[in-house]
């Protein structure tokens, strides 16, 4: 593997980790927003307990991704930042408001009025995955050109395909969160049943949106369609098969298996993309090799990551051991 490919793989691994961990935190926001029925307050509390200790660490994967991207592929980073200025800024607004609102609500619990932040928390959780998904879709569809200039506010990125994939991202986040919560609420059957219903709904919606995306891509975004049905095809087929398994295990309330299956679903979808568009980083103009930084910077990135992970891995293990190792006390 070349240095550039190794750096690209590293960034994709970070993206996957971010999606699997922080995606569920955004999904938690969705379920906070949609909490309903006699146990609405308990649903919200379950979300808050699950997210509380881990969301900030989960969030740092995004920082790592951004920083690693501009270190390893600076020209591609600049092109994306210019072409996707608006969707990325909107995602950022969502990220800021989501994080701040969650903290204000959690740490200001004694303060009256802090619960108004609950609404902000929930709605901002929709913004971030939606616009990140839309931005990713624009890249995969080949809409971002190296020498293009954004013509207008919505031009170039607000395509039907991108908006559909934005919705798909939101529903996948919600699906992830609901299946994680199946595990977290194993000792409270009525609450678990709430989240089982929610997981089924989100999973089914994600399936429908995925099929619609493929159908629309065929006519509207041929490049994306080729990506998924070309080199990405094996993973796409696996994703379709796994999707059925995941829904089935949720239906049968097998929390741990369901959680693994839904994670696998997200991993498959995310990796089908780079495999399908290889050797391009930002098709149609920028390849991985062609937009890579000088080799010393790529080496430095790998070294820092090695040293950093040696410190981080045991710390993360300890964090999840302390807070996710046993069931949270009520």
């Amino acid at each position: 593997m070349t240095l550039a490919a190794a750096n690209a793989a590293l960034l994709w691994a970070a993206l996957t980790t971010y999606a699997v961990l922080a995606g569920a935190d955004f999904g938690g926001g969705v379920w906070d927003l949609l909490a309903s029925g006699p146990r609405a307050a308990q649903q919200r509390r379950a979300v808050a307990e699950a997210m509380g200790p881990v969301w900030e660490a989960n969030h740092v994967w995004l920082i790592f991704l951004v920083v690693g991207f501009f270190t390893a592929f600076p020209p591609a980073f600049a092109v994306l930042a210019l072409a996707l200025y608006l969707p990325l800024t909107l995602a950022l607004v969502g990220i800021i408001l989501r994080g701040a609102a969650f903290a204000f609500r959690a740490h200001g619990a004694e303060a009256e009025g802090a619960s108004r932040w609950g609404l902000v928390f929930g709605s901002a959780s929709l913004l971030a995955p939606f616009f990140l998904g839309a931005a990713a879709a624009d890249v995969a569809a080949g809409h971002v050109h190296a020498n293009g200039r954004p013509a207008g506010v919505f031009e170039g990125w607000a395509t039907p395909e991108a908006l559909l994939i934005g919705l798909l991202a939101v529903s996948l986040c919600a699906y992830l969160a609901a299946t994680y919560l199946l595990v977290e609420t194993a000792d409270r059957p009525d609450l678990q049943a709430d989240f089982r219903r929610r997981a089924l709904g989100a999973g089914a919606l994600a399936g429908v949106l995925a099929i619609a995306t493929l159908a629309l891509a065929r006519s509207q975004a041929p490049r994306l369609f080729e990506t998924l049905t070309g080199n990405g095809l094996p993973l796409l087929v696996l994703a379709i098969l796994n999707g059925g398994v995941a829904l089935w295990t949720v239906w049968r309330t097998r929390p741990r298996v369901a959680r693994a299956a839904v994670i696998a679903q997200v991993v498959l979808v995310i990796w089908a993309w780079p495999l399908g568009q290889w050797p391009y980083l930002v098709p149609p103009d920028l390849t991985v090799a062609g937009s890579a930084a000088p080799s010393q910077a790529l080496q430095a990135m790998l070294v820092v990551t090695g040293v950093g992970m040696a410190l981080l891995a045991p710390s993360l293990w300890y964090l999840f051991h302390v807070f996710k190792g046993r069931l949270p006390q009520a």
Partner: peptide, 22 residues
């Protein structure tokens, strides 16, 4: 222009944030 040159401290900073958050 500068991403690859000053990326090192920024990525080291990323890990510092990780440890701080954990």
């Amino acid at each position: 222009f500068s991403g690859s040159i000053i990326g090192l401290p920024f990525s080291a900073e990323g890990f510092a944030f990780f440890l701080e958050a954990v």
